[in-house]
Protein backbone atom coordinates (compact mmCIF):
# COMPACT_ATOMS: atom_id res chain seq x y z
CA UNK A 1 0.00 0.00 0.00
CA UNK A 2 2.68 2.38 1.04
CA UNK A 3 4.84 1.57 -1.92
CA UNK A 4 1.89 2.06 -4.25
CA UNK A 5 1.25 5.51 -2.78
CA UNK A 6 4.84 6.51 -3.22
CA UNK A 7 4.80 5.21 -6.77
CA UNK A 8 1.57 7.03 -7.43
CA UNK A 9 2.90 10.29 -6.08
CA UNK A 10 6.14 10.03 -8.02
CA UNK A 11 4.15 9.24 -11.16
CA UNK A 12 2.01 12.32 -10.67
CA UNK A 13 5.17 14.27 -9.92
CA UNK A 14 6.83 13.04 -13.08
CA UNK A 15 3.78 13.93 -15.15
CA UNK A 16 3.66 17.39 -13.64
CA UNK A 17 7.34 17.86 -14.25
CA UNK A 18 7.04 16.74 -17.86
CA UNK A 19 4.08 19.05 -18.27
CA UNK A 20 5.98 22.04 -16.97
CA UNK A 21 8.93 21.30 -19.22
CA UNK A 22 6.64 21.47 -22.25
CA UNK A 23 4.91 24.54 -20.96
CA UNK A 24 8.17 26.48 -21.38
CA UNK A 25 7.32 26.79 -25.04
CA UNK A 26 3.95 28.45 -24.66
CA UNK A 27 1.96 30.86 -26.74
CA UNK A 28 4.07 33.95 -27.30
CA UNK A 29 3.95 37.51 -28.51
CA UNK A 30 6.40 38.71 -31.15
CA UNK A 31 7.53 42.33 -31.47
CA UNK A 32 7.77 43.82 -34.96
CA UNK A 33 8.43 47.31 -36.34
CA UNK A 34 6.26 48.21 -39.32
CA UNK A 35 6.47 49.37 -42.02
CA UNK A 36 9.61 47.84 -43.48
CA UNK A 37 8.49 46.57 -46.83
CA UNK A 38 8.70 43.76 -47.93
CA UNK A 39 9.84 42.28 -44.62
CA UNK A 40 6.90 43.59 -42.59
CA UNK A 41 4.14 45.98 -43.62
CA UNK A 42 0.39 46.41 -43.71
CA UNK A 43 -1.88 45.60 -46.62
CA UNK A 44 -4.26 48.42 -47.65
CA UNK A 45 -6.96 46.92 -45.40
CA UNK A 46 -4.65 47.00 -42.37
CA UNK A 47 -3.54 43.36 -42.14
CA UNK A 48 0.06 42.72 -41.11
CA UNK A 49 2.00 40.90 -43.76
CA UNK A 50 5.50 40.49 -45.15
CA UNK A 51 8.28 37.92 -45.20
CA UNK A 52 8.90 38.03 -41.44
CA UNK A 53 5.20 37.77 -40.63
CA UNK A 54 4.53 34.84 -42.98
CA UNK A 55 7.65 32.97 -41.91
CA UNK A 56 6.96 33.72 -38.24
CA UNK A 57 3.41 32.39 -38.50
CA UNK A 58 4.67 29.27 -40.29
CA UNK A 59 7.27 28.73 -37.54
CA UNK A 60 4.65 29.09 -34.80
CA UNK A 61 2.35 26.69 -36.60
CA UNK A 62 5.24 24.22 -36.91
CA UNK A 63 5.99 24.45 -33.16
CA UNK A 64 2.28 24.26 -32.43
CA UNK A 65 1.84 27.53 -30.53
CA UNK A 66 -0.23 30.66 -31.05
CA UNK A 67 1.74 33.77 -31.88
CA UNK A 68 0.47 37.30 -31.56
CA UNK A 69 2.25 40.21 -33.30
CA UNK A 70 2.94 43.35 -31.30
CA UNK A 71 3.88 46.49 -33.22
CA UNK A 72 6.75 48.41 -31.60
CA UNK A 73 8.92 51.27 -32.87
CA UNK A 74 12.43 50.23 -33.81
CA UNK A 75 14.44 52.35 -31.41
CA UNK A 76 12.70 50.81 -28.39
CA UNK A 77 12.41 47.28 -29.69
CA UNK A 78 15.13 45.61 -27.57
CA UNK A 79 14.17 47.39 -24.33
CA UNK A 80 10.57 46.29 -25.06
CA UNK A 81 11.72 42.67 -25.16
CA UNK A 82 13.51 43.11 -21.82
CA UNK A 83 10.42 44.76 -20.36
CA UNK A 84 8.39 41.65 -21.38
CA UNK A 85 6.08 43.53 -23.69
CA UNK A 86 6.66 40.56 -25.98
CA UNK A 87 8.73 37.37 -25.91
CA UNK A 88 10.57 37.55 -29.22
CA UNK A 89 11.56 40.03 -31.92
CA UNK A 90 11.21 39.08 -35.56
CA UNK A 91 11.71 42.33 -37.36
CA UNK A 92 14.62 42.18 -39.83
CA UNK A 93 17.05 42.29 -36.93
CA UNK A 94 20.64 41.68 -37.94
CA UNK A 95 22.65 39.42 -35.66
CA UNK A 96 25.78 41.20 -34.40
CA UNK A 97 28.01 41.18 -31.35
CA UNK A 98 26.60 44.32 -29.76
CA UNK A 99 23.12 42.88 -29.81
CA UNK A 100 24.31 39.44 -28.71
CA UNK A 101 25.27 41.01 -25.41
CA UNK A 102 21.62 41.93 -24.89
CA UNK A 103 19.59 39.17 -26.48
CA UNK A 104 19.72 35.54 -27.55
CA UNK A 105 19.49 35.01 -31.30
CA UNK A 106 18.03 32.12 -33.28
CA UNK A 107 19.92 30.77 -36.26
CA UNK A 108 19.89 33.30 -39.11
CA UNK A 109 16.79 32.93 -41.28
CA UNK A 110 17.67 35.41 -43.99
CA UNK A 111 20.81 37.26 -45.07
CA UNK A 112 20.17 40.45 -47.01
CA UNK A 113 22.80 42.91 -48.10
CA UNK A 114 22.56 46.65 -47.44
CA UNK A 115 22.65 49.09 -50.31
CA UNK A 116 22.82 52.80 -51.15
CA UNK A 117 19.89 54.39 -52.95
CA UNK A 118 19.87 57.82 -54.58
CA UNK A 119 17.62 59.79 -56.96
CA UNK A 120 17.96 58.66 -60.57
CA UNK A 121 19.52 62.01 -61.53
CA UNK A 122 22.23 61.74 -58.87
CA UNK A 123 25.81 61.80 -60.14
CA UNK A 124 27.31 59.92 -57.19
CA UNK A 125 29.20 56.97 -58.61
CA UNK A 126 30.65 55.22 -55.58
CA UNK A 127 29.74 56.00 -52.00
CA UNK A 128 33.08 56.82 -50.37
CA UNK A 129 33.62 59.37 -47.60
CA UNK A 130 35.25 61.63 -50.23
CA UNK A 131 32.37 61.43 -52.71
CA UNK A 132 29.67 61.96 -50.06
CA UNK A 133 31.34 64.98 -48.47
CA UNK A 134 28.80 67.64 -47.52
CA UNK A 135 25.85 65.51 -48.61
CA UNK A 136 22.82 64.60 -46.52
CA UNK A 137 22.51 60.88 -45.82
CA UNK A 138 19.29 59.30 -44.55
CA UNK A 139 19.21 56.27 -42.20
CA UNK A 140 16.74 54.77 -39.78
CA UNK A 141 17.75 55.56 -36.19
CA UNK A 142 19.42 52.72 -34.30
CA UNK A 143 19.82 50.41 -37.29
CA UNK A 144 23.16 48.87 -38.22
CA UNK A 145 23.09 51.15 -41.27
CA UNK A 146 22.93 54.07 -38.82
CA UNK A 147 26.00 52.77 -36.97
CA UNK A 148 27.92 52.18 -40.20
CA UNK A 149 27.11 55.59 -41.66
CA UNK A 150 27.71 57.41 -38.37
CA UNK A 151 31.16 55.87 -37.91
CA UNK A 152 32.33 56.11 -41.52
CA UNK A 153 30.57 59.20 -42.88
CA UNK A 154 29.47 61.09 -39.75
CA UNK A 155 32.46 63.47 -39.91
CA UNK A 156 32.12 64.52 -43.54
CA UNK A 157 28.37 64.36 -44.21
CA UNK A 158 25.11 65.31 -42.48
CA UNK A 159 23.33 62.24 -41.15
CA UNK A 160 19.54 62.54 -40.85
CA UNK A 161 18.10 59.85 -38.58
CA UNK A 162 14.45 58.89 -38.92
CA UNK A 163 12.12 57.02 -36.58
CA UNK A 164 10.57 55.01 -39.42
CA UNK A 165 11.61 54.04 -42.94
CA UNK A 166 8.45 55.79 -44.20
CA UNK A 167 9.51 59.21 -42.86
CA UNK A 168 12.82 58.73 -44.61
CA UNK A 169 11.19 57.90 -47.95
CA UNK A 170 8.98 60.99 -47.54
CA UNK A 171 12.03 63.21 -47.09
CA UNK A 172 13.80 61.48 -49.98
CA UNK A 173 10.78 62.29 -52.19
CA UNK A 174 10.84 65.86 -50.90
CA UNK A 175 14.44 66.27 -52.07
CA UNK A 176 15.87 66.73 -48.58
CA UNK A 177 18.21 63.72 -48.85
CA UNK A 178 20.99 63.10 -51.34
CA UNK A 179 21.33 59.40 -50.60
CA UNK A 180 19.96 56.80 -48.18
CA UNK A 181 21.43 53.57 -46.83
CA UNK A 182 19.00 50.68 -46.34
CA UNK A 183 18.54 46.93 -46.24
CA UNK A 184 18.54 46.11 -49.95
CA UNK A 185 15.12 44.32 -50.10
CA UNK A 186 13.48 47.20 -48.26
CA UNK A 187 15.04 49.87 -50.47
CA UNK A 188 14.12 47.88 -53.55
CA UNK A 189 10.48 47.55 -52.49
CA UNK A 190 9.96 51.12 -51.27
CA UNK A 191 12.17 53.11 -53.64
CA UNK A 192 12.73 51.11 -56.81
CA UNK A 193 9.61 48.94 -57.29
CA UNK A 194 6.93 51.35 -56.12
CA UNK A 195 8.36 54.50 -57.77
CA UNK A 196 9.53 53.26 -61.13
CA UNK A 197 12.45 55.25 -62.51
CA UNK A 198 12.79 57.79 -59.69
CA UNK A 199 15.63 56.09 -57.83
CA UNK A 200 18.63 53.88 -58.48
CA UNK A 201 21.07 51.72 -56.54
CA UNK A 202 24.52 53.25 -56.11
CA UNK A 203 27.54 50.97 -55.96
CA UNK A 204 27.52 47.37 -54.84
CA UNK A 205 25.58 45.32 -52.33
CA UNK A 206 27.32 45.75 -48.97
CA UNK A 207 27.77 42.89 -46.47
CA UNK A 208 31.20 43.73 -45.04
CA UNK A 209 32.66 44.44 -42.51
CA UNK A 210 30.98 41.82 -40.32
CA UNK A 211 31.48 44.09 -37.32
CA UNK A 212 28.58 46.17 -38.65
CA UNK A 213 26.69 43.89 -40.97
CA UNK A 214 26.70 40.78 -38.85
CA UNK A 215 25.45 37.39 -39.80
CA UNK A 216 22.03 37.90 -41.29
CA UNK A 217 18.63 38.36 -39.71
CA UNK A 218 17.78 36.41 -36.55
CA UNK A 219 14.86 36.13 -34.19
CA UNK A 220 15.79 37.68 -30.83
CA UNK A 221 14.79 36.21 -27.46
CA UNK A 222 15.61 37.05 -23.86
CA UNK A 223 18.89 35.36 -22.83
CA UNK A 224 17.15 32.95 -20.48
CA UNK A 225 14.58 31.66 -22.99
CA UNK A 226 16.94 29.09 -24.50
CA UNK A 227 14.25 26.47 -24.95
CA UNK A 228 12.12 28.87 -26.93
CA UNK A 229 15.08 29.69 -29.19
CA UNK A 230 15.81 25.99 -29.69
CA UNK A 231 12.19 25.32 -30.60
CA UNK A 232 12.37 28.04 -33.26
CA UNK A 233 15.70 26.74 -34.59
CA UNK A 234 14.26 23.25 -34.98
CA UNK A 235 11.14 24.57 -36.66
CA UNK A 236 13.25 26.70 -39.01
CA UNK A 237 15.31 23.64 -40.02
CA UNK A 238 12.10 21.69 -40.66
CA UNK A 239 10.59 24.45 -42.80
CA UNK A 240 13.79 24.68 -44.85
CA UNK A 241 13.70 20.89 -45.40
CA UNK A 242 10.06 20.60 -46.37
CA UNK A 243 10.09 23.50 -48.82
CA UNK A 244 7.78 25.85 -46.89
CA UNK A 245 10.63 28.35 -46.41
CA UNK A 246 11.40 28.37 -50.13
CA UNK A 247 7.71 28.97 -50.92
CA UNK A 248 7.50 32.03 -48.69
CA UNK A 249 10.90 33.25 -49.92
CA UNK A 250 9.89 33.14 -53.57
CA UNK A 251 6.61 34.93 -52.78
CA UNK A 252 8.58 37.95 -51.64
CA UNK A 253 11.96 38.00 -53.31
CA UNK A 254 11.61 36.39 -56.69
CA UNK A 255 10.10 37.92 -59.79
CA UNK A 256 6.58 36.70 -60.42
Amino acid sequence: MKIQTILGISLIGATLFAGSANADVRDIRIGVDVPYEPMEFRTPDGELTGFDIELGNALCAEIGIQCEWVVQGWDGIIPGLMARKYDAIMSSMTINDDRRKQVLFSDPYFTPPSAWFAPAASDIEMPYPQTLEGMTIGVQRGTLQDNYVTDNFGDVADVNRYATADDMVLDMDAGRLDIVFLDFPVGKATLIDSKAGDYKVIGEMITEPKEYFGDGFGIAFRQRDEELANAFNEALATLKDNGTYQEIYSDYFEAK
Binding site: R141, A163, D171
Partner: peptide, 22 residues
Protein backbone atom coordinates in the same frame (compact mmCIF):
# COMPACT_ATOMS: atom_id res chain seq x y z
CA UNK B 1 14.25 65.12 -32.87
CA UNK B 2 11.23 63.71 -34.74
CA UNK B 3 12.22 65.84 -37.71
CA UNK B 4 15.85 64.56 -37.53
CA UNK B 5 17.25 67.52 -35.56
CA UNK B 6 20.00 66.33 -33.22
CA UNK B 7 18.95 68.33 -30.19
CA UNK B 8 19.52 67.13 -26.61
CA UNK B 9 16.73 64.59 -26.81
CA UNK B 10 17.86 63.56 -30.28
CA UNK B 11 21.34 62.85 -28.89
CA UNK B 12 19.80 60.86 -26.03
CA UNK B 13 17.68 58.82 -28.43
CA UNK B 14 20.75 58.15 -30.55
CA UNK B 15 22.75 56.89 -27.57
CA UNK B 16 19.75 54.89 -26.36
CA UNK B 17 19.27 53.19 -29.73
CA UNK B 18 22.95 52.52 -30.21
CA UNK B 19 23.76 51.10 -26.78
CA UNK B 20 20.27 49.89 -25.80
CA UNK B 21 20.74 51.80 -22.55
CA UNK B 22 17.59 53.82 -21.86
Amino acid sequence: SVVTIMDLTGAARFVYARFYAP
